[in-house]
């Protein structure tokens, strides 16, 4: 079963499955304990190390091994966890399990350009105004028409001493938006990297008095980034390419890491994201097998009623035209061969003396003959005429 085509072979929108995009990915932590070694944490001893790799490894949850930051002694107490996802994903949720009392303030950010710029997805705090200058999130979602980074309550401490940070992309999105039809929602859920800023430990209250602080370390495990590899509806899976980069297994005449453009010869109409009801496949140009390249022309596309805008380039086999669908000057269509045949266009072969020119009728192959000359290539004198010695008037009336 091909998820990207129906039983009849017609293209249909398809998407990769929901995965934990962070699984096995390297996590860049701004602080990790064990260097230098302490009694509780030694980075050089696997039994006492707490590296950031534990956040995204597929360990069991019964007795989780946790990443742990250095002991932090004074405000600010920021620690950053960054997970490059390798390519664009469409997020569904982000979660992080804390192994000790969860922080009182956390900011969740995303990048869409592999870490060059960042935008907030959400904030979590017991005091949104003080920590992030934002009001607490309204119960019914964002007030505006589009998604927003809202400030939600900080993760609650669980009876086991830990806690769970859980964020769903729906939390910041107004109800009723549909991913297929909403470009702003598509933008909202798209991320190449996730960053979690742990900005205030649970033990630090409203005061910013560093003197009153007890040394603290953040500790967490099971960082999950639930999402789908972003392929714009044109692939059902992502694979590692020859250079080890995750990339969509593009169908529908598309290419690129996210199937975000049409393949070179598939430019008969503009690229579009597929939806659940329309595949919007890129269509190959119609060049009758006589061209390998084509370009898109928006004006022709509009004039055709948004059906076809491809223009074939470098028509071969003596063909010409937007679709290489007629013969170039000096050639005519051989009616015995299909248009796609390499020899569909035959040379006019007009006689150098009997013909008045070199260009024949493109349909019949008839060359323009001088007076008294006949034949498809003008190579004979007509009945009642005979050959003369003059190349200007090769046939004269028989006396």
């Amino acid at each position: 079963v091909d998820p990207c085509h129906d039983e009849g072979g017609a293209p249909r929108g398809c998407v990769p499955g929901l995965v934990n995009a962070a699984l096995g990915r390297e996590v860049l932590a701004s602080s990790t304990c064990g260097r230098p070694a302490t009694r509780a944490c030694d980075a050089s001893d696997p039994r006492r190390a707490h590296p950031s790799a534990l956040l995204t490894s597929a360990g069991g949850t019964a007795s989780p091994l946790c990443w742990r930051s250095d002991l932090l002694h004074r405000v600010p107490l920021n620690v950053t966890l960054t997970v490059p996802l390798g390519k664009a994903f469409e997020l569904v949720f982000v979660s992080l399990r804390f192994c000790s009392a969860p922080p009182a303030s956390v900011a969740l950010l995303k990048s869409q350009d592999h870490g060059r710029s960042w935008a907030p997805l959400g904030f979590f705090s017991s005091r949104c105004g003080l920590d992030y200058g934002r009001p607490p999130a309204p119960a019914d979602g964002p007030a505006g028409p589009g998604p927003e980074a809202l400030c939600f309550p900080a993760p609650q401490a669980q009876p086991d001493g830990g806690g769970l940070l859980a964020f769903s992309v729906q939390d910041g999105s107004p109800p009723g938006l549909d991913l297929d039809s909403s470009p702003v929602l598509q933008d909202w859920v798209t991320a190449t990297d996730i960053r979690i800023l742990l900005t205030r430990p649970a033990s630090v209250g409203d005061t910013r008095d560093s003197e009153a602080m007890v040394p603290y370390s953040y500790s967490a495990t099971e960082l999950q980034v639930g999402g789908r590899c972003k392929c714009n509806g044109h692939a059902s899976r992502c694979l590692l390419d020859t250079q080890g980069h995750l990339t969509c297994d593009c169908r529908h005449g598309t290419e690129g890491p996210d199937c975000g453009r049409c393949k070179p010869f598939y430019c008969d109409r503009p690229w579009q994201r597929a939806t659940a009801w329309e595949a919007h496949a890129c269509l190959a140009c119609s060049c009758n097998g006589h061209a390998r390249r084509c370009r898109f022309n928006m004006e022709l596309y509009r004039l055709s009623g948004r059906r076809s805008g491809g223009v074939c380039l470098n028509c071969r086999h003596n063909t010409a035209g937007r679709h290489c669908h007629y013969c170039r000057e000096g050639f005519y269509r051989d009616p015995g061969r299909p248009l796609s045949d390499r020899r569909a266009c035959r040379a006019c072969d007009c006689h150098p003396v009997g013909a008045a020119g070199k260009t024949c009728n493109q349909t019949t192959g008839q060359c323009p003959c001088k007076d008294g000359v006949t034949g498809l290539t003008c190579n004979r004198c007509a009945p009642g005429f005979q050959q003369s010695r003059s190349p200007v008037a090769p046939c004269v009336k028989t006396p």
């Binding site: 003396v353 000359v373 034949g375 007509a382 050959q387 090769p394 046939c395």
Partner: peptide, 23 residues
């Protein structure tokens, strides 16, 4: 009636040297 094809050898190119096709 099928007429013979034009015989290039019969043409006199004396005054039309510039029109003479390359063979």
């Amino acid at each position: 009636e099928v007429m013979p094809t034009l015989d290039m050898a019969l043409f006199d190119w004396t005054d039309y040297e510039d029109l003479k096709p390359e063979v």
